[in-house]
Design a protein around this nucleic acid. Structure first.
Lengths: 205, 205
DNA sequence: TAATTCGCATACCGCTGGTATGTGAAAGGA
DNA sequence: TCCTTTCACATACCAGCGGTATGCGAATTA
Protein backbone atom coordinates (compact mmCIF):
# COMPACT_ATOMS: atom_id res chain seq x y z
CA UNK A 1 0.00 0.00 0.00
CA UNK A 2 2.76 2.50 0.78
CA UNK A 3 4.36 1.54 -2.57
CA UNK A 4 3.74 3.95 -5.40
CA UNK A 5 4.71 3.20 -8.93
CA UNK A 6 4.26 6.38 -10.94
CA UNK A 7 6.69 9.26 -10.53
CA UNK A 8 3.85 11.59 -9.70
CA UNK A 9 2.28 9.30 -7.13
CA UNK A 10 5.64 8.87 -5.45
CA UNK A 11 6.17 12.62 -5.18
CA UNK A 12 2.63 13.02 -3.88
CA UNK A 13 3.19 10.53 -1.12
CA UNK A 14 6.44 12.14 -0.13
CA UNK A 15 4.89 15.61 0.09
CA UNK A 16 2.06 14.27 2.20
CA UNK A 17 4.42 12.49 4.53
CA UNK A 18 6.62 15.56 4.86
CA UNK A 19 3.62 17.66 5.82
CA UNK A 20 2.56 15.11 8.41
CA UNK A 21 6.07 14.87 9.79
CA UNK A 22 6.66 18.61 10.09
CA UNK A 23 3.15 19.19 11.34
CA UNK A 24 3.58 16.62 14.05
CA UNK A 25 6.96 18.01 15.02
CA UNK A 26 5.68 21.56 15.34
CA UNK A 27 2.40 20.64 17.01
CA UNK A 28 4.28 18.58 19.58
CA UNK A 29 6.84 21.30 20.21
CA UNK A 30 4.66 24.41 20.35
CA UNK A 31 1.06 23.25 20.63
CA UNK A 32 -1.72 23.41 18.07
CA UNK A 33 -2.69 27.03 18.62
CA UNK A 34 0.83 28.40 18.37
CA UNK A 35 1.65 26.71 15.09
CA UNK A 36 0.68 28.46 11.88
CA UNK A 37 0.07 26.81 8.55
CA UNK A 38 2.69 29.16 7.13
CA UNK A 39 5.18 27.69 9.57
CA UNK A 40 4.30 24.15 8.64
CA UNK A 41 4.51 24.64 4.90
CA UNK A 42 7.77 26.56 5.27
CA UNK A 43 9.28 23.71 7.30
CA UNK A 44 8.03 21.25 4.70
CA UNK A 45 9.42 23.37 1.85
CA UNK A 46 6.08 23.62 0.12
CA UNK A 47 3.25 26.17 0.00
CA UNK A 48 -0.24 26.33 1.40
CA UNK A 49 -1.52 25.14 -1.95
CA UNK A 50 0.12 21.77 -1.29
CA UNK A 51 -1.26 21.56 2.23
CA UNK A 52 -4.82 22.29 1.15
CA UNK A 53 -4.44 19.83 -1.70
CA UNK A 54 -3.75 17.04 0.82
CA UNK A 55 -5.83 18.10 3.82
CA UNK A 56 -9.09 19.92 4.34
CA UNK A 57 -7.62 22.51 6.69
CA UNK A 58 -5.72 22.90 9.93
CA UNK A 59 -7.96 20.72 12.09
CA UNK A 60 -7.94 18.00 9.41
CA UNK A 61 -4.15 18.01 9.30
CA UNK A 62 -4.06 17.74 13.07
CA UNK A 63 -6.49 14.88 12.98
CA UNK A 64 -4.30 13.01 10.50
CA UNK A 65 -1.30 13.62 12.74
CA UNK A 66 -3.22 12.42 15.78
CA UNK A 67 -4.29 9.33 13.89
CA UNK A 68 -0.66 8.51 13.27
CA UNK A 69 0.24 9.14 16.91
CA UNK A 70 -2.59 6.99 18.24
CA UNK A 71 -1.69 4.14 15.94
CA UNK A 72 1.91 4.34 17.06
CA UNK A 73 0.93 4.16 20.73
CA UNK A 74 -1.55 1.35 20.10
CA UNK A 75 1.09 -0.66 18.27
CA UNK A 76 3.58 -0.26 21.09
CA UNK A 77 1.00 -1.30 23.66
CA UNK A 78 -0.15 -4.28 21.63
CA UNK A 79 3.38 -5.46 20.92
CA UNK A 80 4.34 -5.40 24.59
CA UNK A 81 1.11 -6.93 25.81
CA UNK A 82 1.06 -9.73 23.25
CA UNK A 83 4.50 -10.84 24.41
CA UNK A 84 3.02 -11.82 27.78
CA UNK A 85 1.38 -15.24 27.98
CA UNK A 86 -0.55 -14.68 31.20
CA UNK A 87 -3.68 -12.51 30.78
CA UNK A 88 -3.08 -10.54 33.95
CA UNK A 89 0.51 -9.86 32.97
CA UNK A 90 -0.78 -8.72 29.61
CA UNK A 91 -2.87 -6.11 31.37
CA UNK A 92 -0.10 -4.78 33.59
CA UNK A 93 2.52 -4.88 30.87
CA UNK A 94 0.14 -3.10 28.52
CA UNK A 95 -0.45 -0.38 31.07
CA UNK A 96 3.28 0.10 31.56
CA UNK A 97 3.79 0.22 27.81
CA UNK A 98 1.05 2.82 27.48
CA UNK A 99 2.63 5.03 30.10
CA UNK A 100 5.98 4.76 28.36
CA UNK A 101 4.53 5.52 24.94
CA UNK A 102 2.22 8.33 26.00
CA UNK A 103 4.98 10.22 27.79
CA UNK A 104 7.11 10.41 24.65
CA UNK A 105 7.75 14.02 23.58
CA UNK A 106 6.11 13.63 20.17
CA UNK A 107 2.99 12.11 21.71
CA UNK A 108 2.01 13.72 24.99
CA UNK A 109 0.82 17.14 23.96
CA UNK A 110 -0.78 16.10 20.70
CA UNK A 111 -2.65 13.10 22.09
CA UNK A 112 -3.52 14.20 25.61
CA UNK A 113 -3.73 17.99 25.66
CA UNK A 114 -4.59 19.39 22.24
CA UNK A 115 -6.46 16.37 20.93
CA UNK A 116 -9.65 16.80 22.96
CA UNK A 117 -9.66 20.58 22.57
CA UNK A 118 -9.13 20.63 18.80
CA UNK A 119 -11.40 17.77 17.79
CA UNK A 120 -13.86 18.02 20.64
CA UNK A 121 -13.96 15.47 23.42
CA UNK A 122 -16.47 13.14 21.79
CA UNK A 123 -14.50 12.82 18.56
CA UNK A 124 -11.27 12.43 20.47
CA UNK A 125 -12.80 9.73 22.62
CA UNK A 126 -13.92 7.83 19.53
CA UNK A 127 -10.39 7.86 18.16
CA UNK A 128 -8.92 6.90 21.50
CA UNK A 129 -11.40 4.09 21.84
CA UNK A 130 -10.62 2.82 18.36
CA UNK A 131 -6.92 2.74 19.15
CA UNK A 132 -5.06 2.54 22.43
CA UNK A 133 -8.03 2.43 24.81
CA UNK A 134 -9.42 -0.53 22.92
CA UNK A 135 -6.57 -2.73 24.07
CA UNK A 136 -7.35 -1.91 27.67
CA UNK A 137 -11.01 -2.79 27.24
CA UNK A 138 -10.02 -5.98 25.40
CA UNK A 139 -7.65 -7.03 28.16
CA UNK A 140 -10.29 -6.43 30.79
CA UNK A 141 -12.92 -8.26 28.77
CA UNK A 142 -10.58 -11.24 28.42
CA UNK A 143 -9.95 -11.32 32.15
CA UNK A 144 -13.64 -10.99 32.85
CA UNK A 145 -14.41 -13.90 30.54
CA UNK A 146 -12.00 -16.15 32.43
CA UNK A 147 -13.53 -15.13 35.74
CA UNK A 148 -10.53 -13.26 37.06
CA UNK A 149 -12.44 -10.03 37.39
CA UNK A 150 -15.46 -9.24 39.44
CA UNK A 151 -18.46 -9.55 37.18
CA UNK A 152 -19.11 -5.85 36.92
CA UNK A 153 -19.38 -4.28 33.46
CA UNK A 154 -15.89 -3.59 32.12
CA UNK A 155 -16.58 -0.44 30.13
CA UNK A 156 -16.84 2.00 33.03
CA UNK A 157 -13.78 0.54 34.68
CA UNK A 158 -11.84 0.78 31.43
CA UNK A 159 -12.77 4.41 31.01
CA UNK A 160 -11.81 5.38 34.53
CA UNK A 161 -8.52 3.53 34.25
CA UNK A 162 -7.91 5.21 30.93
CA UNK A 163 -8.47 8.58 32.52
CA UNK A 164 -6.19 7.74 35.39
CA UNK A 165 -3.43 6.61 33.05
CA UNK A 166 -3.77 9.65 30.82
CA UNK A 167 -3.37 11.84 33.86
CA UNK A 168 -0.44 9.72 34.98
CA UNK A 169 1.25 10.12 31.63
CA UNK A 170 0.76 13.88 31.72
CA UNK A 171 2.23 14.01 35.18
CA UNK A 172 5.16 11.74 34.43
CA UNK A 173 6.14 13.92 31.50
CA UNK A 174 5.37 17.26 33.12
CA UNK A 175 8.20 19.56 32.08
CA UNK A 176 8.00 21.51 35.33
CA UNK A 177 7.69 18.85 38.02
CA UNK A 178 7.64 15.36 36.52
CA UNK A 179 6.10 12.62 38.59
CA UNK A 180 7.99 9.61 39.88
CA UNK A 181 7.35 6.50 37.74
CA UNK A 182 7.63 4.11 40.68
CA UNK A 183 5.22 6.15 42.78
CA UNK A 184 2.74 6.26 39.93
CA UNK A 185 2.92 2.54 39.42
CA UNK A 186 2.50 1.80 43.09
CA UNK A 187 -0.69 3.87 43.02
CA UNK A 188 -1.96 2.37 39.78
CA UNK A 189 -1.39 -1.28 40.63
CA UNK A 190 -3.85 -1.36 43.54
CA UNK A 191 -6.45 0.15 41.26
CA UNK A 192 -5.97 -2.71 38.84
CA UNK A 193 -6.02 -5.21 41.67
CA UNK A 194 -9.30 -3.78 42.86
CA UNK A 195 -10.91 -5.13 39.72
CA UNK A 196 -10.19 -8.73 40.68
CA UNK A 197 -13.01 -10.95 41.78
CA UNK A 198 -13.51 -10.64 45.52
CA UNK A 199 -13.79 -14.44 45.76
CA UNK A 200 -10.31 -15.71 46.65
CA UNK A 201 -7.47 -16.12 44.13
CA UNK A 202 -9.46 -18.50 41.87
CA UNK A 203 -13.20 -18.51 41.35
CA UNK A 204 -15.11 -21.70 40.61
CA UNK A 205 -15.41 -22.90 37.01
CA UNK B 1 -14.97 43.25 49.22
CA UNK B 2 -17.54 43.02 46.40
CA UNK B 3 -19.04 46.28 47.70
CA UNK B 4 -18.01 49.36 45.78
CA UNK B 5 -18.84 52.83 46.98
CA UNK B 6 -18.01 55.24 44.16
CA UNK B 7 -20.23 55.42 41.10
CA UNK B 8 -17.26 54.79 38.87
CA UNK B 9 -16.01 51.80 40.86
CA UNK B 10 -19.48 50.30 40.76
CA UNK B 11 -19.69 50.65 37.01
CA UNK B 12 -16.22 49.21 36.67
CA UNK B 13 -17.13 46.13 38.67
CA UNK B 14 -20.29 45.62 36.68
CA UNK B 15 -18.48 45.81 33.36
CA UNK B 16 -15.89 43.35 34.58
CA UNK B 17 -18.53 40.95 35.80
CA UNK B 18 -20.50 41.22 32.57
CA UNK B 19 -17.39 40.39 30.57
CA UNK B 20 -16.69 37.38 32.78
CA UNK B 21 -20.30 36.24 32.55
CA UNK B 22 -20.60 36.53 28.78
CA UNK B 23 -17.13 35.13 28.27
CA UNK B 24 -17.96 32.12 30.37
CA UNK B 25 -21.25 31.59 28.61
CA UNK B 26 -19.71 31.71 25.15
CA UNK B 27 -16.62 29.68 26.05
CA UNK B 28 -18.81 27.00 27.56
CA UNK B 29 -21.18 26.95 24.61
CA UNK B 30 -18.78 27.10 21.67
CA UNK B 31 -15.30 26.39 23.02
CA UNK B 32 -12.38 28.76 23.45
CA UNK B 33 -11.14 28.66 19.85
CA UNK B 34 -14.53 29.35 18.31
CA UNK B 35 -15.27 32.40 20.41
CA UNK B 36 -13.95 35.76 19.23
CA UNK B 37 -13.28 38.77 21.40
CA UNK B 38 -15.62 40.68 19.12
CA UNK B 39 -18.36 38.24 20.01
CA UNK B 40 -17.72 38.58 23.71
CA UNK B 41 -17.66 42.36 23.78
CA UNK B 42 -20.75 42.51 21.58
CA UNK B 43 -22.62 40.21 23.98
CA UNK B 44 -21.43 42.31 26.89
CA UNK B 45 -22.47 45.52 25.13
CA UNK B 46 -19.03 47.04 25.39
CA UNK B 47 -16.00 47.32 23.10
CA UNK B 48 -12.59 45.71 22.97
CA UNK B 49 -11.21 48.73 24.74
CA UNK B 50 -13.14 47.73 27.84
CA UNK B 51 -12.01 44.14 27.61
CA UNK B 52 -8.35 45.07 27.34
CA UNK B 53 -8.78 47.54 30.15
CA UNK B 54 -9.82 44.72 32.46
CA UNK B 55 -7.85 41.75 31.12
CA UNK B 56 -4.48 41.26 29.47
CA UNK B 57 -5.87 39.43 26.47
CA UNK B 58 -7.93 36.44 25.44
CA UNK B 59 -5.99 33.81 27.43
CA UNK B 60 -6.07 36.05 30.51
CA UNK B 61 -9.84 36.44 30.26
CA UNK B 62 -10.18 32.69 29.94
CA UNK B 63 -7.97 32.20 32.94
CA UNK B 64 -10.15 34.53 34.99
CA UNK B 65 -13.22 32.61 33.87
CA UNK B 66 -11.60 29.31 34.73
CA UNK B 67 -10.66 30.64 38.13
CA UNK B 68 -14.29 31.40 38.78
CA UNK B 69 -15.37 27.98 37.58
CA UNK B 70 -12.79 26.16 39.68
CA UNK B 71 -13.77 28.08 42.77
CA UNK B 72 -17.41 27.27 42.17
CA UNK B 73 -16.67 23.56 41.88
CA UNK B 74 -14.38 23.60 44.89
CA UNK B 75 -17.04 25.30 46.99
CA UNK B 76 -19.66 22.76 46.01
CA UNK B 77 -17.35 19.88 46.83
CA UNK B 78 -16.31 21.38 50.14
CA UNK B 79 -19.86 22.17 51.18
CA UNK B 80 -21.05 18.62 50.50
CA UNK B 81 -18.02 16.97 52.05
CA UNK B 82 -18.05 19.07 55.19
CA UNK B 83 -21.62 18.03 55.89
CA UNK B 84 -20.44 14.45 56.45
CA UNK B 85 -19.09 13.64 59.89
CA UNK B 86 -17.34 10.39 58.99
CA UNK B 87 -14.02 10.88 57.14
CA UNK B 88 -14.67 8.08 54.67
CA UNK B 89 -18.14 9.42 53.91
CA UNK B 90 -16.55 12.83 53.35
CA UNK B 91 -14.37 11.29 50.66
CA UNK B 92 -17.15 9.49 48.85
CA UNK B 93 -19.60 12.37 49.18
CA UNK B 94 -16.95 14.77 47.93
CA UNK B 95 -16.33 12.59 44.90
CA UNK B 96 -20.01 12.47 44.11
CA UNK B 97 -20.27 16.21 44.50
CA UNK B 98 -17.33 16.71 42.19
CA UNK B 99 -18.90 14.56 39.50
CA UNK B 100 -22.14 16.50 39.81
CA UNK B 101 -20.43 19.88 39.66
CA UNK B 102 -17.98 19.05 36.88
CA UNK B 103 -20.69 17.77 34.57
CA UNK B 104 -22.58 21.03 34.69
CA UNK B 105 -22.90 22.67 31.27
CA UNK B 106 -21.04 25.85 32.25
CA UNK B 107 -18.18 23.88 33.73
CA UNK B 108 -17.28 20.79 31.74
CA UNK B 109 -15.76 22.22 28.59
CA UNK B 110 -14.04 25.17 30.22
CA UNK B 111 -12.50 23.23 33.08
CA UNK B 112 -11.78 19.86 31.54
CA UNK B 113 -11.29 20.33 27.81
CA UNK B 114 -10.11 23.83 26.97
CA UNK B 115 -8.39 24.56 30.27
CA UNK B 116 -5.32 22.38 29.76
CA UNK B 117 -4.99 23.31 26.10
CA UNK B 118 -5.27 27.06 26.57
CA UNK B 119 -3.15 27.49 29.71
CA UNK B 120 -0.88 24.52 29.18
CA UNK B 121 -1.15 21.41 31.27
CA UNK B 122 1.26 22.50 33.99
CA UNK B 123 -0.50 25.78 34.66
CA UNK B 124 -3.88 24.08 34.54
CA UNK B 125 -2.72 21.47 37.00
CA UNK B 126 -1.55 24.13 39.40
CA UNK B 127 -4.97 25.75 39.35
CA UNK B 128 -6.71 22.43 39.69
CA UNK B 129 -4.48 21.51 42.60
CA UNK B 130 -5.14 24.83 44.32
CA UNK B 131 -8.88 24.30 44.03
CA UNK B 132 -10.96 21.17 43.62
CA UNK B 133 -8.16 18.61 43.57
CA UNK B 134 -6.88 19.93 46.87
CA UNK B 135 -9.96 18.70 48.66
CA UNK B 136 -9.35 15.20 47.36
CA UNK B 137 -5.76 15.22 48.54
CA UNK B 138 -6.85 16.64 51.90
CA UNK B 139 -9.48 13.97 52.37
CA UNK B 140 -6.97 11.24 51.56
CA UNK B 141 -4.37 12.77 53.85
CA UNK B 142 -6.90 12.88 56.67
CA UNK B 143 -7.79 9.24 56.16
CA UNK B 144 -4.13 8.30 55.98
CA UNK B 145 -3.43 10.11 59.24
CA UNK B 146 -6.11 8.08 61.02
CA UNK B 147 -4.74 4.85 59.62
CA UNK B 148 -7.68 4.06 57.39
CA UNK B 149 -5.57 4.05 54.27
CA UNK B 150 -2.62 1.89 53.38
CA UNK B 151 0.48 3.84 54.20
CA UNK B 152 1.46 4.60 50.64
CA UNK B 153 2.05 8.22 49.62
CA UNK B 154 -1.26 9.92 48.92
CA UNK B 155 -0.21 12.30 46.17
CA UNK B 156 0.06 9.76 43.33
CA UNK B 157 -3.22 8.15 44.34
CA UNK B 158 -4.91 11.55 44.45
CA UNK B 159 -3.68 12.42 40.99
CA UNK B 160 -4.78 9.14 39.45
CA UNK B 161 -8.18 9.42 41.09
CA UNK B 162 -8.46 12.98 39.90
CA UNK B 163 -7.73 11.87 36.36
CA UNK B 164 -10.25 9.07 36.62
CA UNK B 165 -12.93 11.42 37.90
CA UNK B 166 -12.22 14.05 35.27
CA UNK B 167 -12.66 11.39 32.62
CA UNK B 168 -15.79 10.19 34.35
CA UNK B 169 -17.23 13.70 34.34
CA UNK B 170 -16.47 14.10 30.66
CA UNK B 171 -18.13 10.82 29.92
CA UNK B 172 -21.17 11.46 32.08
CA UNK B 173 -21.82 14.73 30.28
CA UNK B 174 -20.88 13.55 26.80
CA UNK B 175 -23.48 15.15 24.52
CA UNK B 176 -23.32 12.20 22.11
CA UNK B 177 -23.40 9.16 24.36
CA UNK B 178 -23.53 10.12 28.02
CA UNK B 179 -22.33 7.56 30.53
CA UNK B 180 -24.52 5.99 33.17
CA UNK B 181 -23.98 7.59 36.61
CA UNK B 182 -24.64 4.37 38.50
CA UNK B 183 -22.21 2.41 36.34
CA UNK B 184 -19.56 5.04 36.81
CA UNK B 185 -19.98 5.04 40.54
CA UNK B 186 -19.85 1.26 40.75
CA UNK B 187 -16.53 1.41 38.94
CA UNK B 188 -15.17 4.28 40.99
CA UNK B 189 -16.07 2.96 44.41
CA UNK B 190 -13.83 -0.12 44.23
CA UNK B 191 -10.98 2.15 43.26
CA UNK B 192 -11.52 4.17 46.39
CA UNK B 193 -11.83 0.99 48.44
CA UNK B 194 -8.53 -0.21 47.08
CA UNK B 195 -6.84 2.59 49.00
CA UNK B 196 -7.90 1.16 52.33
CA UNK B 197 -5.33 -0.48 54.54
CA UNK B 198 -5.05 -4.14 53.62
CA UNK B 199 -5.16 -5.16 57.28
CA UNK B 200 -8.75 -6.09 58.05
CA UNK B 201 -11.52 -3.53 58.69
CA UNK B 202 -9.63 -1.86 61.54
CA UNK B 203 -5.88 -1.58 61.83
CA UNK B 204 -4.08 -1.68 65.19
CA UNK B 205 -2.99 1.76 66.44
C1' DT C 1 -14.58 75.25 39.16
C1' DA C 2 -10.32 74.01 37.24
C1' DA C 3 -7.28 70.02 37.04
C1' DT C 4 -6.86 65.24 37.01
C1' DT C 5 -8.01 60.62 36.75
C1' DC C 6 -9.59 56.63 34.41
C1' DG C 7 -13.06 53.61 32.33
C1' DC C 8 -13.98 52.84 27.98
C1' DA C 9 -14.58 53.87 22.73
C1' DT C 10 -12.45 54.48 18.18
C1' DA C 11 -9.31 53.54 14.69
C1' DC C 12 -5.93 50.91 13.05
C1' DC C 13 -2.33 46.96 12.23
C1' DG C 14 0.01 42.49 11.12
C1' DC C 15 -1.04 37.99 10.64
C1' DT C 16 -3.95 33.98 10.38
C1' DG C 17 -6.76 30.27 8.19
C1' DG C 18 -9.03 29.76 4.04
C1' DT C 19 -10.25 30.30 -1.15
C1' DA C 20 -9.92 31.05 -6.13
C1' DT C 21 -7.17 30.67 -9.81
C1' DG C 22 -3.00 29.85 -12.51
C1' DT C 23 0.72 26.57 -14.30
C1' DG C 24 3.80 23.20 -15.81
C1' DA C 25 5.26 18.59 -15.81
C1' DA C 26 3.68 13.80 -15.86
C1' DA C 27 0.20 10.47 -17.75
C1' DG C 28 -2.66 8.86 -21.47
C1' DG C 29 -4.43 8.39 -26.18
C1' DA C 30 -3.82 8.69 -31.51
C1' DT D 1 5.54 11.36 -31.72
C1' DC D 2 2.59 14.94 -30.64
C1' DC D 3 -1.44 16.54 -28.73
C1' DT D 4 -4.63 16.45 -24.86
C1' DT D 5 -5.83 15.81 -20.33
C1' DT D 6 -4.83 15.35 -15.64
C1' DC D 7 -3.33 16.88 -11.32
C1' DA D 8 0.09 18.20 -7.79
C1' DC D 9 1.24 22.26 -6.37
C1' DA D 10 2.28 27.55 -6.57
C1' DT D 11 0.53 32.30 -6.55
C1' DA D 12 -2.43 35.91 -5.24
C1' DC D 13 -5.79 37.42 -2.54
C1' DC D 14 -9.42 38.03 1.27
C1' DA D 15 -12.22 38.60 5.63
C1' DG D 16 -11.68 38.29 10.28
C1' DC D 17 -8.76 37.59 14.20
C1' DG D 18 -6.10 39.12 18.50
C1' DG D 19 -3.72 43.02 19.86
C1' DT D 20 -2.13 48.16 20.24
C1' DA D 21 -2.19 53.23 20.24
C1' DT D 22 -4.77 56.96 20.98
C1' DG D 23 -8.87 59.89 21.87
C1' DC D 24 -12.58 61.42 24.96
C1' DG D 25 -15.86 62.59 28.41
C1' DA D 26 -17.84 61.84 32.87
C1' DA D 27 -16.66 61.01 37.65
C1' DT D 28 -13.31 62.35 41.14
C1' DT D 29 -10.25 65.39 43.51
C1' DA D 30 -8.01 69.79 44.94
Amino acid sequence: MPEATGARARQREQTRRTLLREGRRLFAAHGYADVSLSGIVAAARVTKGALYHHFDGKPALFRAVLDEVQEEVADAVAATADAEPDPWDRLTAGCRAFLAAATAPGVRRIMLVDGPAVLGWSAWREMDEANSARHLADALAGLAASGVLADRPVEPAARLLSGAMNEAALWLADPRAPGDPDAVWEALEPMLESLRASRGPDADR
